[in-house]
Amino acid sequence: MQWLFLSIAIVSEVIATSALKASEGFSRLLPSLVVVTGYAIAFYFLSLTLRTVPVGVAYAIWSGAGVALITLIAWIFLGQSLDAPALIGLALIVAGVVVLNVFSKSVAH
C-alpha cells in the first residue's frame, strides 16, 4: 500500500508543479487551486508513505520521479529542449531510483 500512496503523492506533486506556470504567480484562480490542492494531496500521501518507508528513501524516490516527470511534461507540452547533458542527468536520476528500489536494504518491501 505504501507504494500506491507514494505514487499518488508523486502524481499529485507533478500535477501541482505543472500548474504553477499557468497560475501566473497565483494570479489565476483555477490553476492556483490546482497547485494548492495538488500539493496538499501530495504531502498527505507522502506522510502516509512515511509510516512504513524511511524518509530518505521515500523523498529520494518522490523527488527523483517528480524531476523526471516534470522534465518530460515540460519537454512535451511546454517546448523545453533537452540536450545530451540533460538527458544523461535524467537517466542518472532514474537509475538512482531504480538502484534504491531494487538493491537497497533500506527500502521497505
Rank of each mutant, 00 (worst) to 15 (best):
G25W: 10
L72F: 14
Q80T: 11
G25Q: 07
S18M: 02
F43M: 13
V34K: 00
Y39M: 11
L6G: 08
A65P: 01
L20F: 15
I76C: 14
A22S: 15
F77P: 00
V97Y: 05
S7E: 02
V11N: 08
V55A: 15
Q80A: 14
M1Y: 12
W62S: 10
L30H: 13
A91Q: 05
I70K: 04
T37M: 11
G79E: 03
T17H: 07
E13C: 11
S32R: 10
I61M: 12
V99F: 13
V57E: 00
F77N: 00
G56C: 01
T17A: 15
A22D: 14
G79A: 04
A95W: 01
V55R: 02
I10R: 02
A95I: 12
L90P: 04
L100C: 09
T71Y: 00
A58W: 05
S63K: 03
V97W: 08
Y39V: 06
A58S: 09
L33K: 01
S104E: 02
A22M: 14
V57T: 10
V98L: 07
S23C: 10
W75F: 15
T17L: 06
L33W: 04
V57C: 00
S104N: 08
A86L: 01
V98P: 03
L82V: 08
R28E: 03
G64D: 05
H109N: 09
A60F: 04
A58N: 03
L4C: 05
S12W: 05
S104T: 06
Y59A: 06
V35P: 07
L69W: 01
V36K: 03
D83V: 12
E13Q: 12
P85D: 13
L29V: 14
L48P: 00
G64T: 09
A19N: 02
W75I: 09
S18W: 13
T52Y: 11
P85I: 14
I8H: 01
L29P: 02
A40N: 03
Y44C: 05
L87H: 03
G25N: 10
A84C: 00
G25V: 07
L29D: 00
I61F: 03
F45W: 10
W3E: 09
A16Y: 11
I76K: 15
I8D: 01
A65Y: 01
W75K: 13
G96E: 10
F5L: 02
I10E: 01
F43H: 09
V107C: 02
Y39D: 09
F45Q: 04
L6R: 10
F103G: 04
L29Y: 05
